[in-house]
C-alpha cells in the first residue's frame, strides 16, 4: 500500500507538469487552431528563466585574495556577490537562495512577450496552412530555440536548487500512520503540485468568470459569429497565445529544481504532452488536465520494480499503450468534442 501511495504522489507532480503544458497547448489549439510543437520549448525557456534569474542574482565581482592561490598558483580571485554587497551577507544569500520563486516575476512578462512575438512574428502566417505545415514550422522553431539555449548555456543540465526551506522531504508516511521514512516526499514537489493546481484553477476561472474569458470561449466555439458581433477576436486569441506561453513558462520555472534544466528538456515533455492532449481530447481544457494527471500517475506505476519485473519495458511504453487503448475505444479522447480536427 505504501508503494502505491508513493507512486500516486510521484504521478501527481509529473502529471502537474504534463497538465500545465497540455493546458497551454489546448488553449492555443482551441483558440488559434494551431498545433504548436514549440510549446515544449516554451516550457524549457521558462526553466531557463529560473537559471538566468539565478545567474543575475549571483553576478559577482572578483577580489584578489593573496592568502590563497588558484590552480595555476596565481593569487586566487574570489567571487564577491553584488547582492551581498548591497543587502548584507545574510539578506543577499537569502535573495540568491530564493532565485526560483523570484524568477516567476521575471518569467511572466518575458514569456508573454515571447508568446506575442512567436504568434505575431511567425505563427500567424500559418493559420490558413495545413496542420502539417504548422507542425513543421513550430517543430523547427523548437529546434532553433533549443540550439540557441545550448549555445549560451551548454549541453549539460544546470542545477537550480529550490530555496533551502523546501529542500528536504516530508515524511508523508508518518502522517498516514506508517513507520518513519516509509513514504518520503520532497517538499518542493508538493509545492509544485499545489502551484500547478493554483495555475490551472486560475486559468479556468479566468476563462469562466471574466468577460474576456467568456468572449474567448465564444470565439473558440464559433469564431465567425463572434467576429460578426464586432469583436476583434484575433487580438484576444493573440493574448491567449501569450497566456499559454506564460503558463508553460511558469511551469518550467517551478520545475527547474525538480529536474535540472537543459536545452533538450522541452522535447522530452513535448511528445508526452501531445499524447496527453490527444488522450484528453483535442480542444478540451478539462480533458487535457485530467489526462495529464492520469498519464502521470500511470507512468509512475509502470516504473515500479514489481511492475517492470512482471512486464519488462512497460515503463517506456505505458503512455503510448494507454493512448492507443483510449483512442481505440474513444476516438475523440476522454473529453473531446465532435468536429474538432475531424474535417
Amino acid at each position: 500500500m505504501d508503494q502505491i501511495i508513493v507512486q500516486v504522489l510521484n504521478g501527481l507532480d509529473k502529471g502537474s507538469a504534463y497538465a500545465l503544458i497540455a493546458l497551454g497547448l489546448t488553449i492555443i489549439f482551441g483558440t488559434l487552431g494551431v498545433v504548436n510543437f514549440a510549446h515544449g520549448a516554451l516550457f524549457m525557456m521558462g526553466a531557463f528563466c529560473a537559471v538566468i534569474t539565478s545567474k543575475i542574482l549571483s553576478v559577482s565581482h572578483q577580489v584578489v585574495d593573496p592568502t590563497r592561490s588558484d590552480f595555476l598558483g596565481n593569487p586566487m580571485q574570489v567571487d564577491t556577490f553584488y547582492v551581498q554587497d548591497w543587502f548584507g551577507m545574510a539578506a543577499g544569500q537569502t535573495i540568491m537562495d530564493w532565485a526560483v520563486p523570484i524568477a516567476i516575476l521575471f518569467a511572466i512578462p518575458v514569456m508573454i512577450f515571447v508568446g506575442f512575438a512567436m504568434e505575431r512574428g511567425l505563427i500567424k502566417h500559418f493559420y490558413k496552412r495545413p496542420h502539417a505545415d504548422q507542425i513543421l514550422v513550430t517543430f523547427g522553431l523548437a529546434l532553433v530555440i533549443g540550439e540557441i539555449i545550448k549555445y549560451f548555456f551548454g549541453a549539460n543540465p544546470i542545477q537550480t536548487p529550490a530555496p533551502p526551506a523546501f529542500t528536504g522531504s516530508l515524511d508523508f508516511g508518518m502522517i498516514l500512520g506508517y513507520e518513519a521514512q516509509t513514504i518520503m516526499y520532497p517538499y518542493w514537489r508538493l509545492v509544485y503540485f499545489f502551484f500547478s493546481a493554483f495555475i490551472i484553477a486560475g486559468v479556468f476561472a479566468f476563462l469562466q468568470f471574466t468577460t474576456f474569458g467568456m468572449v474567448v470561449r465564444a470565439g473558440m466555439a464559433d469564431r465567425e459569429t463572434v467576429g460578426l458581433l464586432g469583436i476583434d477576436i484575433d487580438k484576444r486569441f493573440t493574448f491567449m497565445f501569450g497566456l499559454a506561453a506564460a503558463v508553460a513558462g511558469v511551469a518550467g520555472v517551478m520545475y527547474a529544481p525538480i529536474v535540472a534544466p537543459n536545452y533538450f528538456m522541452g522535447m522530452d515533455f513535448l511528445v508526452l504532452s501531445f499524447v496527453v492532449v490527444v488522450v484528453g481530447g483535442m480542444g478540451s481544457l478539462p480533458g487535457a488536465v485530467a489526462a495529464g494527471f492520469l498519464l502521470g500517475v500511470l507512468e509512475s506505476f509502470a516504473s515500479m520494480p514489481a511492475v517492470i519485473d512482471l512486464l519488462p519495458g512497460i515503463n517506456q511504453i505505458i503512455i503510448y499503450l494507454v493512448a492507443i487503448i483510449i483512442l481505440l475505444t474513444r476516438p475523440r479522447g476522454l473529453m473531446g468534442r465532435k468536429g474538432v480536427m475531424e474535417e
Binding site: Q3, V6, N10, G11, D13, R189, S303, M304, N315
Partner: peptide, 8 residues
Amino acid sequence: DFSSYIAP
C-alpha cells in the same frame, strides 16, 4: 525525472 525509480 527519476522520482518513480528512486521512491521505492
